[in-house]
């Protein structure tokens, strides 16, 4: 028994690695062959597809473009509130206010994405019944709900990045007679930029992969390239979900695997970048992990 125990304990991580390896190999085996321009553009010449001159029916390009727009829009919507709230939490909030803000962020972080989606859905239903009878689920609504989803990620990483800065920096700058807001925006924020970037990239990854929110707020299977803020759109995760249930032939299925592989690689890449940035940032600051910024 004594001899066996270390080996029994080693079984647990081995099992996990094995399961993940099986899933990954399966995905690669099914999807790797399809990774080519055809996967994205079908039979349409890539340049024309990218410029939007020819519609793509047999490729993932509209879904990719949709996800791209969605992610950018989400980031644009969430950036200022997220940074502002993170700065306030780290630099200005009294303990009481900090408790309120972190409670709000904790609640938001714990809320399932489908509930965020429901929130967006409810919003549209309300608008339609009141003063915007033509309102419908759309790209903008999805992005708004997603920005709610990534808000806690941005807030907590912004707060953590600021708190990892040395205390001396703050005191020195204040002792020079600078106003606190100047210190924060001109000295602390640039110093913390690498940590901030890590948080933003994490938020990017989070908004790119979420499916439940966009399912309820405007993603559809055949919308073509995203036409505008008020239109329905295609997205990569939704395309994957849709393929699993509605595929017609082997070609559809292969495209589904290609899409899954693409999304997987994308989020792994983003998270790796964020990880490296964060490690570098914390090592530079020799920062112990700052406490108090809940995640």
């Amino acid at each position: 028994m004594k001899r066996l125990l270390p080996w029994l304990i080693r079984l647990a991580p081995l099992l996990l690695v094995a399961v993940c390896a099986i899933l990954l190999v399966f995905l690669l085996q099914q999807g790797l062959g399809s990774l080519s321009p055809t996967l994205l553009f079908g039979n349409v010449p890539p340049l024309q597809a990218i410029l939007g001159k020819a519609p793509v029916w047999e490729g993932l390009w509209p879904a990719c473009a949709g996800t791209f727009c969605l992610v950018l829009l989400t980031q644009a919507l969430a950036l200022l509130p997220g940074l502002g709230c993170g700065i306030y939490l780290a630099e200005y909030a009294s303990p009481k206010k900090a408790a309120t803000i972190s409670l709000a962020m904790d609640i938001l972080a714990g809320t399932p994405s489908i509930v965020m989606g429901l929130f967006g859905f409810t919003l549209i239903v309300c608008l339609r019944q009141s003063f915007l009878p033509n309102a419908n689920t759309s790209l903008l609504l999805s992005a708004a709900c997603l920005s709610l989803l990534v808000l806690p990620v941005i807030v907590s990483s912004c707060c953590e990045a600021l708190r990892a800065l040395p205390r001396d920096l703050r005191i020195t700058a204040l002792a020079l007679g600078l106003k606190k807001r100047t210190v924060v925006t001109r000295i602390l924020l640039p110093q913390a930029s690498q940590g901030l970037a890590a948080g933003l990239i994490l938020a990017l990854a989070r908004s790119a992969e979420d499916t439940a929110v966009i399912m309820l707020t405007g993603a559809v299977a055949n919308a073509g390239l995203p036409a505008g803020l008020w239109d329905k759109f295609e997205a990569l995760p939704f395309a994957i979900y849709y393929t699993a249930g509605e595929y017609q032939n082997a070609q559809d299925l292969t495209r589904g695997f290609g899409a899954a592989l693409l999304l997987l690689l994308l989020s792994i890449l983003l998270v790796l970048i964020a990880h490296v940035l964060e490690r570098r940032y914390l090592r530079q600051r020799q920062g112990t992990h700052a406490a108090g910024c809940s995640r």
Binding site: L23, E209, P237, I240, Y241, A244, A260, L263, L264, I268
Partner: peptide, 11 residues
């Protein structure tokens, strides 16, 4: 950070 939709799809 593995997307759940990818996990579901594979499963």
């Amino acid at each position: 950070t593995v997307p759940t939709v990818v996990l579901s799809f594979a499963a």
